[in-house]
């Protein structure tokens, strides 16, 4: 690893904080997307919409 000089702590914390926040953001978005896809699939197989319009 390269030498970051006397202020290495701040640089490391900056990158660490951004990395953690972005990872959390990506994780949250993916989990939310999965959850809603599953819910939608469950509702559609239950025939919540089709049976009313297409018998």
């Amino acid at each position: 690893m390269i030498d970051l000089g006397p202020h290495a702590v701040y640089i490391v914390w900056a990158y660490l904080g951004v990395a953690v926040a972005i990872a959390a953001l990506i994780g949250f978005k993916l989990v939310e997307s999965r959850r809603l896809s599953a819910r939608l699939a469950a509702l559609e197989t239950a025939g919540a919409d089709r049976s009313a319009t297409h018998p």
Partner: peptide
């Protein structure tokens, strides 16, 4: 991704309302 999720959320909500 957020837009896709939002579209699905609206669809889920309207399906649940119909149910």
């Amino acid at each position: 991704i957020g837009m896709h999720t939002e579209v699905r959320r609206r669809r889920v909500m309207s399906l649940e309302r119909r149910l």
